[in-house]
Design a protein around this nucleic acid. Sequence first.
DNA 1: CATGAATGAGGATTCATTCAT
DNA 2: TATGAATGAATCCTCATTCAT
Lengths: 191, 191, 191, 191
Amino acid sequence: MRAKSLTEQARRAQIVAAAIEVLAELGYGATSFKQIAARAGLSSTGLISYHFKGKQELVDSVYAEVRRTFTEFVLERMDHSATAAGELRAFLSANLRFLRAHRAHMVALAQVRPHVSAADSADDDHRKMADLLRQGQRRGEFREFDADTVAIFVLALRNGVLARAGDHPEVDLDLCERELITVVELATRRG
Amino acid sequence: MRAKSLTEQARRAQIVAAAIEVLAELGYGATSFKQIAARAGLSSTGLISYHFKGKQELVDSVYAEVRRTFTEFVLERMDHSATAAGELRAFLSANLRFLRAHRAHMVALAQVRPHVSAADSADDDHRKMADLLRQGQRRGEFREFDADTVAIFVLALRNGVLARAGDHPEVDLDLCERELITVVELATRRG
Amino acid sequence: MRAKSLTEQARRAQIVAAAIEVLAELGYGATSFKQIAARAGLSSTGLISYHFKGKQELVDSVYAEVRRTFTEFVLERMDHSATAAGELRAFLSANLRFLRAHRAHMVALAQVRPHVSAADSADDDHRKMADLLRQGQRRGEFREFDADTVAIFVLALRNGVLARAGDHPEVDLDLCERELITVVELATRRG
Amino acid sequence: MRAKSLTEQARRAQIVAAAIEVLAELGYGATSFKQIAARAGLSSTGLISYHFKGKQELVDSVYAEVRRTFTEFVLERMDHSATAAGELRAFLSANLRFLRAHRAHMVALAQVRPHVSAADSADDDHRKMADLLRQGQRRGEFREFDADTVAIFVLALRNGVLARAGDHPEVDLDLCERELITVVELATRRG
DNA sequence: CATGAATGAGGATTCATTCAT
DNA sequence: TATGAATGAATCCTCATTCAT
C-alpha cells in the first residue's frame, strides 16, 4: 500500500466527484464508467480502472467520500456542550441542512448504499445514535426505551425524510425540520 | 388485452415468484433473466420474454404482486371499526408481521421500487396515511401537526424498520413492534 | 405429395394473403410469423409452420401467388391478336394498371423477390420478353438490336417504374404510362 | 462530433469494407455483426459496436462509402464540357464500368438501400437526372417529354441493368453499354 | 500517467420451429 | 387440424477491464 501521489489523489477525487454527480442524476443502474469518464472530462474509461482496482473500489470510495463530507458537515453543526436532547436536535437539523447544501451527495448516497461492500458502516451510525440515546437516558433526559430500537427509528426518520425530500422537491424543508424535531422530542423525552 | 389462460397465469406467477426470490437474494443489479429462468426451472430465458413483453413488465408485475400480497395481508389485520389511532396501530403491527411472514417479498419490494414504471404508488401510501392522520385530528385523537409531513415520518419509520430488520436478522421484531407503536402514539396523540 | 384438402388450401391461401399484406406494410425484415399470424387472425404461429414446411416455403408461396395474380391480370389485358409492338404496349399498360389495382401485391413482390429460392423465375419473364422482341424483329416491326439485352431494359423500366411509384404516391401513373409507351416505342421501332 | 483518429478511421473503413463484402455475398438478412467481425478478422462483435453507435450507423456508413466511391468513379468519367446528351451518355457508361470495377459495392448498395435511414438520397439522383434532362431540352438536344418521368426511366434502366448484371455474370457488359446508350438516345433525342 | 483501442462475457429480446394436448 | 406453450439459437448492444503505446 504505497502512499498516493498528489496527482493520484486529485484524479481519484475528480473521478469520485463525477461519479457522485452521475449517480445523483441517472441512478446506480445507469452509472457506467463511460458516463463517469464523460462527466469528468476524461478521454478514457481505462483511466478509471487505472486509478481504482475495480468498480467496487470506486463505489466504496464514493460512499466513503459522501460519508466524509456528510459527517464533517454534521459535526460542524453539532452542539457538543449541551444535553443529549440538544445533540439529537442538532443532529436532525444538520441532516436536513445537508440535504439543502449537497443534494447530489445525498441522492448518490442512497443510490450507492445497497452496493457498498464495506462492513456496513450504517452500523456505525446506528451505534453512535444508540450511545447518544443511552447517554440521554442516564442523564434523565429521555424516558425508558430500548435504545437500539429507538436508534433505528431516529435513523429511519432521517433516511425517510431525506429520501422523500430527494424525490419531491416541493417538500417544505423548514416545516419538515420543525415537525421532525417535535416528533422526536415527544417520542423520547421523559414524562 | 386478451384474457390470460390458466397455464399462462400459472407460468407468469411462477416466474414472478422466482424473480422475487432472486431479487431478495441477489439484488436488482444481479437479477437477470438467466438467473430467474434458472430459479424457475425454465430451460430458456426466451420463455420469460414469451410471457412478459419486456423486463419492465416483469418488474412491474413483481411490484404489483408484492403490493397485492402485502395489501391483502395488512387489510386482513386492520381494525376498521375503531379509532384512527387504532387503525394506525394496526397498520404498523401488520407491517412488521408481514416482514416475518414474507421476508423475501419485503426485500424484493425494496429492490424493485426504484425501477417500477407505474406512477409512483408510494404516493398512494403517502396520501392514504395523510388522510388517516387528518381524520384522527378531526376526531380529536391526534394533536395538531402537518399531516403530510407526519405521514412522511410514519412511512419512514415503517420503511426504515423493515429495511433494518431485513438486513439484521437479530432485530427483535416483537420488541420493535411495541416500541414503534409507543413512539408513534407519543408523537401523535393529543395533549 | 398428397393432395391438399380444401381446408388446407383455404388456410394456406389465408396465410399467404396475410403475408402479402404484412410484407407490403412492414417490409421483409419486419415480417415475422408473429405478424403474419396476427394479421391472419390466427392464434398461433405454430399453425403457419404446420401448413408450410418452413419460412422458405411460405416465401416461395407468396411469390408464386403474387406471380399468379399478376400474370393472370396481365394476360387478361394482353392483345394477342395483334402485332408484337401492340403486345409490348399492352404488357406495359397492364403492369401499370396492376400496380393501381393491387399495390400491396406489387410491393410484396419487390420485398420477397430477393429471398425466393425458386430457380429465379425472373428469368422466365426475361425469356418471354426476349422472345416477344425477337418475334417483332422477325416481323419487321422492331429495329435490329440484341433482344436479350433490350429485354433487360424493358423489364428494368417496368420494375423501376413500379418501384418508384410504390414509394412515391405522387407519381402520375397515367402520364407515366403514356411516356413509358412512347419511350419504348422510340427505342424499339424500326427506322 | 469529435475528429476521428487515424486508427479509428482505419478501423471504421476496415469494418465497412468487411460489411460490404458480407452484404454482397450473403445479402442484408444474413449480414450480422458476427459475420462482419469474422470477415474483418475481429475477435469480437463488441468492437463493431465500439466504433459504430449501432447497426443503423454502420448501415448508413456502408451506404455513404459505396455512394462516395461510386460518385467519385462516375464523376471522374463524366464529360462536363459537352452537351447534355454527352453527359447522359457518359453517366451511363460510367455506371456500367463501375459495376465491372466494384461489383461487390454495387450489390451491397442494392442490399443496403432499403435500410438506409438518410433522407432517401435516391431522390438526389432523381433530381439531378431530371435537371440534366431539362437542360438538354432547353438546348434543343432532347425532344419534349416530362423530364421527371423520363428521369425515372433512365435511372430505372441504370438500376435494372446493374441488378441483372450483378446476378448474371454472363451478361456482356460491353454490348449492354452500347445498346443502353443507343436506347436512351433514341428515346430522348429531338426529331 | 494518460490514452484509446480491443476484449469477451453477459445483457434482453426476437425468431422459426417443435410438441403435447 | 388447431392451439399455445416451450425451446434454443441468434440478434444487437453494453459493460468493466486490459494493454500497447
